[in-house]
Design a protein around this nucleic acid. Structure first.
Lengths: 226, 226
DNA sequence: TGTCGCAGGATCGTATCCAATATTTCATTC
DNA sequence: GAATGAAATATTGGATACGATCCTGCGACA
């Protein structure tokens, strides 16, 4: 899932392209929470009809990025502090569980994949590419969990993550947070490589919990202010 | 979520109706796993155009009931034993966690709601209404968890459940299984009513685990045979 | 002054029609 | 007879067009 395995000859559907376009706008912050998405505006902007726009919005709703109300269109979903707690608590249950399952059936190839994901993440920090950072951060997490062979749980995690993704961005910006996250990733990888399920699970849990705490407190500050 | 709160004057959209129609067919077993769903066939059957059918299928894909492949249409998703393990393991993590959160903020009204859900479930068994049994079983579970105020996690659970729902039906049929499940529901409610979070969580976990084991072994038999 | 009712425009939902892709059929060749 | 390739058919993806619903603002009435 880091990247869909080699779209050797990629022939995307218009709906998929529109979905990516809107998702990028939301994650990038161009469409803030609460923003009304007008089907026709997007359609005109991209030179397509409203049908693929509608279908894209349906997919984004399933991912939790927008909320659709009948005859009233789509609104970029907003995240309350309570929502963030909700989402991260679920991640805190699933990720440590899955990483244990992953380690139980770990191949050397899997370890190599995680190592590569870790290096990509490092590289993005070094060259200061915040756009990619969020994506590569998640790619590292999925690489860790992928060997668990739990596609359903992974799909669930994907939606949990993408719902909170754009708020993570705020947290990822400061350099200090970045180096902390990087060190944690390295520690996790080290335990993972040694197939120490208990330690890996513990470190991963803490890693996610720290991120959660950071985001939640930030959102609470925002709610108190606004 | 047992029933969307009072569609006082229900004006459903065609897409929603089609989605319900197809979902019922799938859950009821009319469309078995692997069955190809032809948009035009459904459209003609219901006297609507293909657009709402397509959008309904998109929603059903998000719920895990079908898989859509580009230019190849929708196929009713099939559940392997591994998939079932995957889905139920996730439920086993989330439900006990949520029920604890629910008990922590339980009102008398909430308890009354669960009691009503339990009675409805009992009544369906008494009058031998297998169609409703699955729905009311899940209504009981959601009533238990609703007070946790975790809409995101609840949405996740909803998809986890609906993906395995129709296979549960096989297990629910025998009267012996029904009375066992009913007794377990009663025990869970008793601990819940007393606000005993640990015991409720323990019982609920066992309840779900038993159902999981039953389904998985059944699926494995089917895979060995077929 | 505030509430209600009623245009008018904006936006969404659905039907109909056309284009792109996949699948099947059938002839052709080795 | 099996494999390859090309037309025919079936099915989905997308565009245009129309009808339904919602929202806003203005005026009437209490």
């Amino acid at each position: 899932m880091p990247t869909p395995p080699k779209p050797l000859l990629q022939r995307q559907t218009v709906t998929a392209m529109v979905a990516e376009y809107i998702a990028a706008k939301i994650i990038g912050g161009d469409y803030p929470g609460g923003h009304q998405i007008r089907q026709e505006a997007i359609a005109a902007e991209l030179g397509v009809s409203r049908i693929p726009v509608r279908e894209a919005l349906l997919q984004l709703e399933a991912e939790g990025l927008v909320v659709i109300r009948t005859h009233r269109g789509a609104v970029v979903s907003d995240l309350s502090a309570d929502d963030a707690i909700d989402l991260f608590d679920a991640r805190l249950l699933l990720e440590p569980f899955l990483v244990k399952k992953a380690i139980a059936r770990l191949s050397n190839q899997d370890i190599a994949n995680v190592e590569r994901a870790l290096r990509d993440y490092e590289a993005a920090i070094v060259r200061g590419d915040p756009k990619e950072l969020s994506r590569l951060n998640w790619a590292f997490h999925t690489a860790l969990l992928e060997p668990s062979m739990r596609p359903r749980s992974m799909a669930v995690l994907q939606t949990l993550y993408s719902s909170a993704d754009r708020y993570l961005r705020l947290q990822i910006e400061p350099l200090k947070a970045q180096t902390k996250a990087l060190q944690e990733h390295r520690d996790i990888f080290e335990a993972y490589r040694l197939r120490d399920a208990v330690e890996t699970s513990r470190l991963l849990k803490k890693h996610v919990a720290d991120a959660a705490e950071e985001i939640v407190s930030q959102l609470k500050r925002g709610e108190a202010a606004g």
